[in-house]
Write a protein that binds this DNA or RNA. Structure first.
Lengths: 171, 171
DNA sequence: CTTGGAATGTCAACAAGACTGACATAAATT
DNA sequence: AATTTATGTCAGTCTTGTTGACATTCCAAG
């Protein structure tokens, strides 16, 4: 904290953007605490079923991109294949994910959720969306737009590209 | 995905708040990807020094609340005291944190950063603030306000209280 | 004063989930 | 035929979370 500039600049071009270290620190803390809330509800459901967040993430993105390959999932999740493989192995063994040899390239595995997989994904997602919905409603439409803008600006370049590509897949 | 309502409602009271499942899912993904960016810079610094995120969190909040006790830190970080203790032990051993027996209640330990601790905290914080600053600048002042509103609404009740209490400590 | 309970902090052992490195297999490409 | 790519697996390590057991300190009731 407290490198320099404790006083806000005299409201320049970008309309009242006071970026004191304190403002930034509060943003950091808000992000930390909010992320806890963000994961709390799915975490409870996952714990009952002896899964973890890693399983949730896999289910989410397989649902979002049906037929995706392991390599692609790896890039999006940003973990090692060993780590992802451990998760996928259990999901396939438990009948939540279907891993089919690729048609055009038989080295690839195309991943799909089974009916049971979709059911769990829906349960997890609904819990998380319920909180997000409540937060959005409480904050209002303009706040939501700002929320999304800041989050996008906070992503790494290559990740933002992935995110925007995903946005276009649907709605 | 896709429980119900694919179509936005006809713009009711809260001014154009379209809460389709798809909108919510995008918010969820934005949160996931942005959090990665949020932690990426400090993570790199920590890795060099053989520390982890848990150390960063401890340094952050000890800096923020000098003289705080272990129990208080526990409540804020939301981990078990054993888990926190492991982290504190290494920070104290490495001379980054000073743990003094409480004056009024000698069961308590009052935690402070040493000069070295402040230096590392500053380094980590500056990396994280730099990204936050860039994101804030890119998104603009109104977006920042919305960002904070949504994050606050996403926190658990008791955590939000802690967060707001922290806000008042400074600026 | 003493004793018992509550609060606080520490140590030990374990699990999840990340990592690296080495290696195997199969399929596609050159 | 040789090389590259995609996937999966085994083994070992690290961080960070967990529980359980335990020591110390404080405070209040007897």
């Amino acid at each position: 904290m407290g490198e320099g500039g404790a006083q806000p600049p005299a409201a320049g071009g970008e309309a009242l953007l006071f970026l004191t270290d304190e403002q930034l620190r509060k943003g950091i803390e808000a992000m930390f605490f909010a992320y806890r809330g963000f994961t709390a509800d799915p975490d409870r459901i996952l714990a009952e079923k002896n899964y973890g967040r890693a399983h949730h993430r896999a289910l989410h993105f397989i649902n979002r991109m049906p037929g995706t390959t392991v390599t692609n999932l790896l890039a999006i999740l940003g973990v090692t294949k060993q780590s992802l493989n451990r998760v996928l192995r259990t999901l396939v063994a438990d009948g939540l994910v279907d891993s089919r040899v690729g048609r055009s390239d038989r080295r690839e595995r195309n991943l799909h959720l089974t009916e049971a997989g979709r059911a769990l994904e829906r349960q997890l997602s609904e819990a998380q969306r319920a909180r997000m919905r409540a937060a959005y409603r409480a904050a209002g439409a303009e706040a939501v737009a700002g929320f999304r803008q800041v989050l996008e600006a906070m992503m790494d370049e290559d990740i933002r590209r992935q995110y925007l590509a995903l946005r276009e897949t649907r709605g």
